[in-house]
Computed example of a mutant assay.
Amino acid sequence: MTTIDVRTASPYQVHIAPGALDRLPELVGDATRTAIIHPAVLADQAHHIAQQVPAPLLVEVPAAEDAKTAATLVHCWDELARAGFTRNDLVVGLGGGATTDVAGFVAATWLRGIAFISVPTTVLGMVDAAVGGKTGINIPAGKNLVGAFHEPRAVLCDLDVLTSLPEADIRSGLGEVIKCGFIADPRILELVAQDPADSLNPASVRFAELVRRAVVVKADTVSADLKETTSVGTRVGREALNYGHTLGHAIEKQHGFEWRHGEAISVGMVFAAELSARTLGLGEAVVEQQRAALASVGLPTTYTGDWAPLRAAMSLDKKARGNTLRFVGISEVGSVAMIDAPEETLLTDCFATLNPTA
């Protein structure tokens, strides 16, 4: 069992191992009731967990990004109300990043905050959504625009649950893992380059090490800057984790959240690297290294859609300040800096590099 400490004001631990879910009963503690929020596809697993926790309440929500709506929140709140949930009770989020985002927001808002345990069942959920205390939903204007910071009591990353995931979902999660390599941990990039196929194998030692390293990057980053205070220049806090996300989130919105998150931020990272080359002096070798790393695990590095709707969506990006658009960039591997108010022509030039037929 690998245990990683998240050293925030309300510290907790991330447990990573095959069979990590076995620790759930002890972590529930003295809760009187336990709500297990899950998508339909995980109903069997939710029923199995229900046998290990006190007074279980199973709450089914839509799959993936379809769950992240105000209507889902109301449904969950109504279920908690009917079951008489109090501040002594607990919510378990079982599922991918979208499910744990919603479950965490339900816990954050019910009676102004009750305990929450995150049980991510996807790579993306383990290395990104489940760690860091960000919870929330989408609205038509954009992704994750409504939410709250609410740290879990614990995160259980059971690697056994990943063995049945489609490879496309494994690839999507590796987008976030590779991102962590470029912003903080070059060893991740070495491990992927040595054997991309093994990096996609959730039963491999290499894969477990990639997950561990990505969680360490996120845990260290949020421990130093939980609530994403404003970054300036090369003094970048939690915003570093949004490398590739400004354009990536816009692509997700433009396509009705049908693109997988890792696919969208893969394109977003290529865009951010091109922008970094023009504004921060990032070497062309690193730009190409990034394209190669992402392509090696089957992630997209090109995009042929229209610029105008994406540019409009980016104006609502969480990193924007007033009318100023801001991007996370890198000057070299492991060195992050903010790019403030880049020229519009620069943005369109960088976007043009994504279209190989232009």
Rank of each mutant, 00 (worst) to 15 (best):
P309G: 02
N242G: 08
I170D: 13
V123G: 13
T69S: 14
A108D: 07
A273F: 13
D225W: 10
L247Y: 07
E79I: 00
V232A: 12
E79P: 00
I265W: 00
L145N: 07
T279E: 06
L156V: 10
F351E: 13
F327T: 03
K319S: 00
V236R: 06
I37C: 00
I188N: 14
L325T: 01
V14G: 05
D66L: 14
I170V: 15
A224F: 01
V217M: 03
D30N: 14
G29E: 08
P166M: 11
K68G: 12
S223W: 12
G19M: 03
P18R: 13
W110Y: 11
R112F: 04
H47W: 04
I117K: 01
T304E: 15
G19C: 04
T230C: 00
T34E: 00
G104W: 03
T221I: 10
S204V: 00
V119H: 01
Q13G: 04
R112D: 10
A168E: 14
Q45P: 05
R311D: 08
V61F: 01
K179R: 08
E209M: 11
G147C: 08
I137S: 10
K319P: 00
D5M: 15
Q290L: 15
V61G: 06
A55Y: 02
R23G: 15
A308E: 15
A277L: 03
N242Y: 10
V222Q: 08
A108T: 02
P202M: 07
L111F: 05
A17P: 10
E239D: 15
E79S: 15
A285F: 01
V177K: 07
H261N: 09
Q45H: 15
V205C: 12
E167V: 15
R213F: 01
V53D: 02
E228Y: 02
S172C: 11
V161Y: 13
A293F: 12
F116W: 05
L325F: 03
A115D: 15
P56Y: 04
G244V: 12
L226N: 06
A203P: 01
A17F: 00
S118D: 06
